[in-house]
Amino acid sequence: MTDPLFEFLCRMGDNTLVLGHRVSEWCGVAPVLEEDIALANTALDLIGQTTLWLNLAGEVEGKSRDADALAFRRDVWEFRNVLLVEQPNGDFGQTMMRQFLFDLWHKGMLTALQDSSHDQIAAIAEKSLKEVTYHLERTTDTVIGLGDGTDESHARMQKALDRLYPFVGEMFVADDVDGAMVAHGIAPDPAHLRPEFDATLDEVLSNATLVKPDSEFAHKGGKSGQRHSEHLGHMLSQMQWLQRAYPDATW
């Protein structure tokens, strides 16, 4: 098995890398100017966090790979992000719902990681948490505003929730990597983050007049890397293209 700490750091960094990339796809075409600015800001925060997580992953691995090498030179099966973040942007509602569901998990995770036995992880978590707290405030307001807006905005937000809810469960499923992190006091058991997630989710959805789907079915395979969606490969072919086409160049 690969070093579980390396795996864990790739999971954190790949989540922010893939989501940051998705959000950056909105550049210049948001519904209002303020959203253009806010989306760029979110993408920037996530890309910044990616650099911290993946540089640390590279250090832990000890094979002279830095964040760029990990981001731009790995293929689909080596990515460890959850399936939720690689889902396409869809309309603005789907993008905001995806962001909200991730932010809510992310905030819980980072809060716990501040107490990590690993000093660098605790430091990255502390820095990231400040940004993510703001992300969650904004997406909470947007989900409520659009859920409880017009009939059309309500219908679109419900559809987004129905589309994305099957990707929520994966964020809380623990595996051997998580077990090793718990054993070393590095990271929490993700299952322990679920009750608080559910409590906030229920409250926000109620304010947004949205209904959580009945089924708790959860797609899996992203964080283990065993089975990503087809969407990730297309994203990587765009994101990694320059580095792959001109491998000798520095930028």
Binding site: L17, S24, C27, G28, A40, L44, T50, A67, D68, L242
Partner: peptide, 18 residues
Amino acid sequence: ITRAPTLERKAILLAKVQ
């Protein structure tokens, strides 16, 4: 932005467009 060759270049370009 989606094809920027490094994370730093991507961040700088995003900041500029923002």
